[in-house]
Design a protein around this nucleic acid. Structure first.
Lengths: 217, 217
DNA sequence: TCAGATAATGAATTGTTATTCATAATGTAA
DNA sequence: TTACATTATGAATAACAATTCATTATCTGA
């Protein structure tokens, strides 16, 4: 019944252990200041052992990133598939993103702080893969916006690509301070989805001021 | 008439030279991968010379960041002071931000990619200074939003702090892809301000769909 | 032109840390 | 239990890059 031969399962387990430890250390110190020794100690293995599971530091980092990113993307897609209508999908998109970040704080502390790092590694294969993944997902979001336009939920005069990115930026702007300020932890992230969606959909201008002046794209 | 004794002026000039070179190298390689030798070569000085002007690599980096950030903040404040009314001020805020990024591409490539870096250096004096500067500016933006609410330009039911941050996130979401994709360079950044303001103020929902469902903060 | 400063140089020093690998421990099957 | 295979260990290696500093060049004023 069990799909993995016990040996393989053990191996996977240890690999996961190391990934978890690495996530923690990277989140705390950042990619460059985290040493392999730090990670080894956190995982309660010797340094050499880590190299039995990962080719080098970068591979470890990329494995980490890919798994989480992939998980996030799958989850969002799944949940969006569970609801009907573009508006509901957009809501789920925002909510699930916030929920996932809340659950994976450590990783996303890395993700945001070392964000640009990826863009400098694009020369090698593994990170190119990750880039592709991100680009593909962005395409998916754009498609969602387009559909929303077709359903007359989102204004048709807006460029769907930029609109999707804008929404992403809004979500990020809420997540980042939450990650930084420990004191903000009280307020849950998920609770902010209403706020984001409200401004994204209805705008921040007070009703009386709306469209008061010509704003063109 | 000249306020600087010639010696001092020379010194300042060389310092500026080094800063310019460093900005370029940091932008290209990122903080960690940029070596002092790289920077020296770019500036056409010897490594040792750089240490005559800056205590160490980090000081160089921080000097860089501070000067640009300070310049950006001052500029935005000035320009905002030149116009009347909250709506106009908000427009200027977005426009000037985009304009400045467009003019200082190199620096902001650093600024965004190494963003989290600062948050890990908060232990020492210089970067704490920078943090304070950023916090202070954020406070200023919040005040602008508050004023806009008082003038009934921005909805009064919105938390001004979060609203300010959201707007910042929107601006960033437009700048980052522009920095990354060389091909997007055709379209000027400043031209995006209308798009950002439009969504920020009026929302992305098509008029018929607005407020269709209850979105609460 | 010369002495004494001032500034620039870059080879040598120092410290750090990713990575390797000979050795030890542990598991496995007979 | 023994021989073999697999896995873990961490001290030793190797590479790299920040920083220093003895030396050299340049400037300044007399």
């Amino acid at each position: 019944m069990n799909p993995l031969p016990r040996k393989a399962r053990d191996k996977l387990l240890r690999r996961t252990d190391i990934l978890r430890a690495a996530t923690h250390v990277f989140a705390e110190k950042g990619y460059h200041d985290a040493t392999m020794l730090d990670i080894a100690r956190q995982a309660e293995y010797a340094v050499g052992t880590i190299y039995l599971y990962f080719k080098d530091k970068q591979a470890l980092y990329l494995a980490l990133s890919e798994e989480k990113i992939e998980e996030l993307f799958c989850r969002i897609k799944d949940k969006m598939g569970e609801v009907q209508g573009s508006l509901a999908k957009i809501r789920v998109l925002v909510e699930e993103q916030l929920a996932y970040f809340e659950e994976n704080e450590d990783f996303f502390r890395i993700y945001f702080s070392e964000e640009g790092f990826g863009s400098r590694l694009v020369t090698d294969k593994p990170s190119r893969q990750m880039m592709e993944r991100i680009v593909k997902f962005r395409g998916y979001l754009t498609a969602v916006i387009k559909k929303a336009q077709a359903e007359n939920v989102i204004r048709v005069d807006l460029d769907p690509n930029r609109t999707a990115r804008l929404l992403g930026g809004m979500v990020k702007s809420i997540i980042i301070p939450w990650l930084k300020d420990k004191t903000l932890k009280e307020k849950d992230l998920k609770g902010s989805s209403g706020f984001i969606l409200d401004i994204f959909l209805n705008g921040a201008a007070s009703p009386s001021a709306k469209n008061r002046d010509a704003l063109c794209n």
